[in-house]
Amino acid sequence: SLEEAIRRAEEALRKGQTFEYAGIRVTTQEALEKFRKWAEKQK
C-alpha cells in the first residue's frame, strides 16, 4: 500500500538509505515530502 511505502521511505531516510518506489527515489526529507504529496494524489 502507499501508506506502507511512505513508512518504508521514512525508515530508509532515518537510516540514511535510499528508498525507491514506482521509479521515484527518496533520498532527502524534501524528496520524502514530494513523495507524500504524490502518494496523496494516487488515492
Rank of each mutant, 00 (worst) to 15 (best):
G23W: 05
W38H: 02
E20H: 06
E30I: 07
E4R: 09
A5S: 05
R8V: 06
V26W: 05
L32N: 00
E11A: 10
G23H: 05
E30S: 10
K37C: 07
L13Y: 05
Y21H: 05
E20I: 12
V26S: 01
T27F: 06
E4T: 09
A31H: 14
K41V: 11
F35W: 05
K34L: 14
A5C: 14
F19T: 01
G23D: 05
V26P: 00
R25P: 06
A39V: 15
E4P: 03
E4N: 10
S1H: 13
K41G: 14
G23R: 03
F35N: 00
R25E: 10
W38V: 01
V26L: 09
E40W: 08
R8I: 07
Q17H: 11
E33D: 13
A9Q: 01
R25F: 13
A5F: 12
K37I: 14
E10M: 08
T27H: 10
Q17A: 09
R8M: 14
G16H: 05
Y21R: 01
A12N: 04
A5K: 05
R36V: 12
R7H: 11
S1I: 13
R36D: 00
I24R: 05
F35Y: 03
T27V: 07
Q17R: 08
L32Y: 06
T28W: 04
G16N: 07
R14S: 14
K34A: 15
I6A: 03
T27L: 06
I24Q: 08
E33F: 06
E4K: 07
L13W: 05
K43L: 15
E4Q: 10
A12I: 04
T18S: 13
Q42A: 08
E20T: 09
L13F: 09
K41R: 13
Q42P: 04
T28M: 04
G23V: 01
E33H: 06
A9R: 00
Q29R: 11
R7E: 09
R25V: 15
L32R: 00
G16Y: 03
A31F: 05
T18L: 12
K43N: 13
R14M: 12
L13K: 00
I24N: 04
K41N: 14
A9T: 01
F35R: 00
L32I: 04
V26D: 00
R8F: 09
R8L: 14
L2T: 04
V26M: 06
K41L: 14
V26H: 02
T27I: 06
E40R: 06
T27C: 10
A12F: 07
K34N: 12
E3M: 12
K43E: 11
F19K: 00
I6C: 08
R8Q: 14
R36E: 03
Y21I: 07
L32E: 00
T18K: 07
E4M: 11
R36L: 13
L13D: 00
E30D: 11
F35E: 00
K37Y: 11
Y21P: 00
K43D: 09
G16V: 02
Q42R: 08
A9H: 01
S1E: 14
Q17Y: 12
I6E: 02
T27M: 09
I6S: 02
A31R: 04
R25H: 12
T28G: 05
R25N: 08
L2A: 04
G16K: 04
Q29E: 12
A39Y: 07
A9F: 05
E11M: 07
K34F: 15
E40Q: 08
R7I: 12
Y21W: 13
T27K: 07
Q17N: 09
L32V: 03
R36K: 15
R36N: 02
R8K: 12
K37W: 10
